[in-house]
C-alpha cells in the first residue's frame, strides 16, 4: 500500500498582532496510505479544518512538510496543486458546495467534462445510482433535501475517481437519521473503490467508523 499523504512536523501559526503569534497546529505528523480511513477529531478551534486545508494545499504550513502523492507541496505551484486536486484528490464539504444552477446530474458531469474524463454520463448515472438518487438526477439542489445534497456531493467526489477524499464535517448539517444513512453510504463507496478518506469531524460515532483516529 503506497503512502498517499504524509505530514512531517507540520505546524501552522498566525500572527494576531505585532508581538503575538497564535499556534493553531503544532508539529503534526501523519501518514495515510491508500484504502485507509482516518478521522481527525477534536474540540472546536483545535485546528481540524486548518489541518485539512494544509493537506488539500489550500494553505501553507509555517514549518514542516506536507507530501502529497510523494511530492512535497512546498515545491508545487498553484496550478500543479489544482491539477493534483482534480485527478487524485477530492472533497466533501459540510455545506455541500453544489452549484445551484446545475441539476444533481450536471453537478457531477460538469467536473467530469472539465477534466475531460471518458464515459461522463455513464459514470455520473452510476454514482447517482450508488447513492440512491438516480430518480432525482434532474433536480436542482434547491429541490433536494440536505441529506440528498450531501449524497450528490459524495457521488461527485467518488465519480471523479480520486485516490484520496478529504471530508470536512460531512454530516455537520444533517439530522440524526439522515446522518446515519449518509455515513453508511460514504463508507460503502469507500470500500468499493478502496479510496483513502480523511474525515474531519467532532462526531465521535462517525470517527469510530474510521480505521484510525487522530485527536487534536
Amino acid at each position: 500500500m503506497g503512502v498517499l499523504i504524509e505530514l512531517r512536523q507540520a505546524s501552522k501559526s498566525i500572527t494576531v498582532s505585532d508581538s503575538v503569534q497564535l499556534d493553531i497546529i503544532k508539529s503534526c505528523s501523519l501518514s495515510v496510505s491508500s484504502g485507509e480511513s482516518v478521522a481527525i477529531v477534536g474540540p472546536s478551534g483545535s485546528g481540524k479544518t486548518t489541518l485539512l486545508n494544509l493537506m488539500a494545499g489550500f494553505d501553507q504550513p509555517t514549518s514542516g512538510e506536507v507530501n502529497l502523492f510523494g511530492q512535497p507541496m512546498s515545491q508545487m505551484n498553484e496550478l500543479e496543486k489544482i491539477q493534483l486536486r482534480g485527478s487524485r484528490l477530492s472533497f466533501v464539504f459540510q455545506d455541500f458546495h453544489l452549484l445551484p444552477a446545475l441539476t444533481a446530474l450536471e453537478n457531477i458531469t460538469y467536473l467530469l467534462t472539465m477534466h475531460h474524463k471518458d464515459h461522463i454520463h455513464e459514470t455520473a448515472h452510476y454514482w447517482l445510482e450508488q447513492v440512491g438518487l438516480s430518480k432525482r438526477s434532474g433536480h436542482l439542489p434547491s429541490q433536494l433535501s440536505g441529506g440528498e445534497c450531501q449524497r450528490v456531493a459524495i457521488a461527485r467526489a467518488f465519480a471523479l475517481g480520486a485516490e484520496l477524499i478529504l471530508a470536512d464535517e460531512p454530516t455537520g448539517n444533517l439530522d440524526k437519521s439522515t446522518k446515519d444513512k449518509v455515513v453508511d453510504l460514504f463508507f460503502e463507496c469507500q470500500s468499493k473503490r478502496s479510496t483513502a478518506v480523511i474525515i474531519v469531524t467532532h462526531d465521535l460515532s462517525l470517527a469510530d467508523r474510521c480505521g484510525r483516529q487522530l485527536t487534536l
Binding site: 496550478l79 489544482i82 491539477q83 493534483l84 486536486r85 482534480g86 485527478s87 484528490l89 477530492s90 472533497f91 464539504f93 458546495h97 453544489l98 452549484l99 467536473l111 472539465m114 477534466h115 461527485r156 471523479l160
Partner: peptide, 16 residues
Amino acid sequence: SYLVGVSAAFGVPSKL
C-alpha cells in the same frame, strides 16, 4: 465567484 471557487476546489483551474 462561487462557481469559480467550487471549480478550483475540484481541480479545475480558475483561469479556465
